[in-house]
Amino acid sequence: MAEWLRPRHMNEALRLLAELPADHHQIISGGTDVMVAQQLRAPRDIAVWLDLSAIPELKMVEVTAEGIRIGAGVTLSVLRRHPEVQKHWPMLAASAAVTGAAPIQNRATLGGNLCNASPAADNAPVLLAYGARLEIAGPNGTRFLPYDQFHLGYRQTALAAHELLQAIHVPYLPGGSRAYYRKVGTRAAQAIAKVGIAAWIHFDAGQGIIAARFGLASVAATPCLLPRVSHYLEGNNLKHVCEFTIREKVSSDIKPVDDIRSTAEYRLEVASRLVWEAIHDAH
């Protein structure tokens, strides 16, 4: 029978993880991805389960001087309702609110959404746009990684074998920041996104763009930024931004995929229009 490990502290979890056989173990948090995958696999493939759901440290939300620190085990229903999140990081409250329906959000965690590393993860674009940092715990202590360096390839993350995601840090945004979030799917809550976009644009006192970041889901093998679009916009003025150039930059930034949900061409078209809309409608 498979073994079930349910540590109460992060240190204990890390110690257990360090001793586990490399394959044949499964880390589980809210289980909404793992349990679906488990249905498709023979249960005996997993010899040991490391269950993170009983670790109070992972469930904490703390507001700090720099921003907010969200434990990897915080559920999406907690995030969606959190007054500080709603006030300072409304895109995160919005993305949490459209990640699956109510019973999913009651279990699904933010850390699970990132570590599962689906290119369609709904909270990924928002954290990219906000410039989030990850706090990663391992046997030799804690390290910080900008979130945009976390996704290395399709379902591949920068987590080493004996590391766990501990928390997600989202910074306060400077005055003059505007934001835009949209998930284009087939149905509001349950649909897997065809394209998801989050934008953060930092304007000067007028229409000048100081900085801009766009996070996208479902347009490439991983959630991704649009560095060329950002580069084009930074130092530019909203009045001079050209729709054709945006489209060109978007198409050089992303490698959209054909799959059962949509074609690459459709995704490029939607992504370009969404970026254009984001630049003008961000508020």
């Binding site: 589980i28 289980g31 349990m35 269950d51 019973p103 999913i104 279990r107």
Partner: peptide, 11 residues
């Protein structure tokens, strides 16, 4: 409210 098909007994 949660879906019992996605919850392992261990939790």
């Amino acid at each position: 409210v949660v879906n019992s098909c996605l919850i392992p007994l261990g939790q």
